[in-house]
């Protein structure tokens, strides 16, 4: 369970690979065949992965209440872009309100979690003290158990604090994460300790070292953690489902599930428009942050 930062991790751009070093003796027919098969497999799987998303966007442009199109009628004769304002401004299920809640909650969770977790990661990477390994072990163990076990007591606790159906219930449970602590600790360990020593000689205190040495040198790791936290918070379903109940406090993820049950599968165009609204920010964040993803996942693997 040691630090693993220097192990070669696969960015999406790395392409060093064992089989290539075996088969570089020229393009024998076997290698060509292999290449063709590989591309065929890649294309087939990609098509299956992308098809539902393409379908989602196209169906969202059909007329409300129209039947599920067969593939030959998938492209609507005239795109009904008006489905989007209709969904966003529905007076009874205000998706724009859900959207605001999701943005606000995710932003608060990302900043809060990065702050709280980076403090902990700093202590776990920079300080020697009795109980350090115990604390670290505790964080790792709790990472293993999800909300199934904790749902009832956490609910009762939020109830006693009168936090149910408020932003507190949506934000506070996400303010620290073992995964983020772990990720940041790995990154902090790779920063040379000499820099701390130099800063200390200049009379810098702990907080100054943290803010002015460690944090600026960990931008990439922080971005990785932020991407993960954002996606985790945006797609959290169980928490908002349990801890909120009125329409004005729901997030997009729960809002979408309500949309689904309200239409009972009888209005796919509007349901798909709502789905696109939920998915867009995720895809955008993924597009800009994908190199952080692979890195973060590899870091998360405890070796």
């Amino acid at each position: 369970m040691g630090p693993n930062v220097n192990a070669p991790s696969s960015g999406m751009k790395t392409s060093r690979n064992p089989s290539s070093s075996l088969g570089t003796k020229g393009m024998v027919p076997k290698a060509v065949f292999k290449k063709v098969c590989s591309y065929a497999a890649l294309l087939l799987i990609s098509a299956f992965m992308m098809a539902p998303f393409v379908w989602m966007v196209l169906v969202s442009l059909h007329k409300p209440q129209s039947p599920i199109p067969t593939l030959s009628h998938l492209v609507p004769p005239r795109p009904h872009l008006s489905n989007y304002p209709k969904v966003l401004l529905n007076p009874n299920l205000p998706v724009s309100r859900f959207f605001f809640n999701s943005v606000f909650v995710s932003a608060a969770v990302v900043f809060g979690q990065l702050f709280v977790s980076s403090l902990a990661a700093y202590a776990l990477s920079r300080h020697r003290f009795k109980g350090r390994s115990t604390v670290f072990f505790l964080f790792i163990v709790t990472m293993m158990f999800g909300s199934t076990v904790t749902q009832i007591p956490v609910y009762l606790m939020l109830q006693n604090l009168h936090w149910l159906n408020t932003y507190f219930a949506l934000i506070v449970p996400g303010l620290s994460s073992a995964f983020t602590i772990f990720l940041l600790r790995q990154a902090f360990l790779s920063i040379p300790f000499e820099l701390d020593e130099a800063a200390k000689l200049d009379g810098a205190g702990e907080m100054k070292i943290f803010w002015q040495v460690v944090i600026p040198l960990s931008r990439a790791a922080l971005a990785t953690a932020a991407t993960f936290t954002f996606i985790g918070s945006w797609t959290d379903f169980f928490g908002p489902l349990l801890y909120t109940n009125s329409t004005r406090m729901r997030t997009l993820e729960v809002g979408l599930s309500i949309y689904h049950s309200a239409y009972g599968g009888n209005n796919w165009p509007l349901e798909m428009a709502a789905s696109v609204i939920v998915m867009m920010p995720l895809l955008l964040v993924f597009l800009f942050g994908q190199k952080f993803f692979t890195k973060g996942i590899s870091l998360g693997a405890i070796k």
């Binding site: 992965m49 997009l252 993820e253 789905s275």
Partner: peptide, 16 residues
């Protein structure tokens, strides 16, 4: 592309 379903919303994915 292989990664996209993993970053998708669980509810939207279920509807898909």
């Amino acid at each position: 592309i292989f990664y996209i379903p993993a970053i998708s919303s669980g509810v939207a994915t279920s509807i898909m």
